[in-house]
Every structure is written in C-alpha cells, then in structure tokens.
C-alpha cells in the first residue's frame, strides 16, 4: 500500500518535472530564433528535409483523400438530390479539417520521427554534450532551425494538400461520376469564406508547433526518459512515444481550436 502511494507520488513528480522540462525546452527553442547569427542556411536545409521531401507523401495522401471525399459525398448528397453541393462539401472538409490534420500526421510520421531519432542519437553519442562543451548552444544550433523549418513548411504543405485534395474530389465527382463541373466550382466559390481559410491556417501553425516540439523534445531528453532504457532501445522508444503523442495532440488540439473558433 505504501509502496503504491510512493509510486504514485513518484509518477506525479516525474510528470510535473517532465512538463517543466518540456516548457523550458519550448521557451529556449523559440528564444533561439532571436539570437545572432541567424542560421539561414541550416533553416533552408531543414526546410528541404522536412518540407520539400514530404511533397510526394502529401500529394498521394491528398489526392486519394479528395477522391474518397468526392465518392462518399456524391452518394450521400445524391440521396437528397443535391449533388451540386459536392464541391462545397469537399472543399470545406479539406480546408477546415482534413488538410491541416492529415498534413500534420503525415509530417509527424515522415519528418517528426526522423527528427526525434536524429536528436536522440546525438544525445546518446554525446554529440550534444560536445556542443555544450564547445560553448555552442545546442538549441540555437540544432533545435531552433528545426522549429523554424517545420513552422514554415507545414502551413505550405497544408495549402498544397488542400489544392490537390480538391482536385481529387473533382476527379472522383466530376470526371468519374458526372457531376456538373460548373456546379462543383460554384459550390466552392459560394461556400468557402475567409473564416474557413483562417481556421485552416491557424490549425496548421499550431499543429506544426506541436509536432516539432514533441518530436525534438522527446529526442533531446532521451537520456532521462522514464522506462525508455538506454542506447538504441531508448531512441526507438522515444521515437514511438513522440509519434503517438504528436498524433494524439494534433487531434485534441484540432477539436479545441474548432470549438473556440467556430
């Protein structure tokens, strides 16, 4: 009984410390963006790793998501005789929800996991210690460029997702199922307003921050991660945790942002 209480207390203290650590981590990473010299080349390199290399994945996810939306939407709307609304249904679902969420999830799987593993390995092989010993701030050097690159890339990828997704919906609805193309465009034009686009943009920024924060943070603290073990096993557990936690956080914040901004 006492040992149970001690364990519970330990877990609670660990949780609090973990939150504190992650909070300080976020602060240091963001402050790093305002320090000189600005590592422009490293940010560009990270954008090409995190952003540019994700285009293919995003393209395929988006085109098929759009086509499924077109297909499902068509059969649902036909029951009410309103196939003309298809364009609006596809565009709104993508811009408000699916674009930001699916982009964030794909970036987590493709780039977030890689970031976590990379930083975890650097921690375990004392590369981060070495940076600190050379009096190089590891945040400015390693973490901040990844933050900036993700926060720049994800909103752009999200917009790309939306465009490709709508094209997918067009292919499924108009080309394959014969919805009137004029009606499809009209539906989009008349129903999508600025608020929808703003909502999507806000989401994509928040998701980008969540993903990069959790993924780099889990890697950075791999050596004090609880129940993770050390060495390669520690890195692999940290990476799994980072992907799971990022994905769940994205979905929770999706709900919260929608609830607040509606």
């Amino acid at each position: 009984m006492i040992s149970f209480v001690t364990k519970l207390g330990d877990s609670f203290l660990y949780f609090i410390r973990d939150q504190g650590r992650m909070g300080m981590f976020l602060l240091s990473a963001l402050l790093g963006a305002f320090s000189r010299p600005f590592r422009f080349r490293e940010v560009v390199r990270q954008i090409s790793i995190i952003g540019a290399n994700s285009f293919a994945v995003i393209f395929f996810t988006a085109i098929f998501t759009g086509m499924v939306l077109g297909l499902q939407g068509y059969y649902t709307l036909r029951k009410f005789g309103s196939e003309g609304m298809l364009g609006s249904a596809v565009a709104l679902s993508l811009i408000r929800e699916l674009g930001p969420v699916l982009t964030a999830l794909m970036v987590t799987g493709r780039a977030g996991s890689a970031m976590c593993a990379e930083i975890g390995i650097m921690r375990n092989s004392e590369q981060i210690d070495a940076l600190e010993c050379m009096a190089v701030n590891p945040f400015r050097y390693l973490i901040t460029p990844k933050f900036l690159a993700t926060i720049i890339s994800v909103p752009i990828l999200t917009q790309f997702f939306n465009v490709i997704g709508i094209a997918g919906g067009y292919v499924a609805g108009v080309v394959l199922l014969g919805v009137n193309p004029g009606a499809f465009y009209n539906g989009i034009e008349q129903s999508v307003v600025n608020e929808d686009i703003n909502l999507g943009i806000v989401k994509s920024f928040v998701f980008a921050l969540l993903v990069v924060w959790i993924c780099t943070g889990k890697g950075y603290f791999v050596h004090i991660l609880r129940n993770a073990g050390f060495g390669a096993e520690g890195v692999s557990r940290a990476t799994t945790q980072a992907v799971v936690l990022s994905s769940i956080s994205v979905l929770i914040w999706d709900y919260l942002i929608t609830a607040v901004m509606l």
């Binding site: 092989s125 004392e126 590369q127 210690d129 009096a135």
Partner: peptide, 19 residues
C-alpha cells in the same frame, strides 16, 4: 559556465563527432 568551458578541450569516450 560557458566562459569557463572555453578553457577546456574535451575528447569524449566515443569521440562525439557531429554525424
């Protein structure tokens, strides 16, 4: 601490070169 660290040179157990 960083000012003190500038006095040090360190060879880590695994060399700790940046990959």
């Amino acid at each position: 601490l960083n000012r003190i660290r500038e006095k040090f040179g360190v060879l880590f157990q695994g060399a700790a070169l940046l990959d």
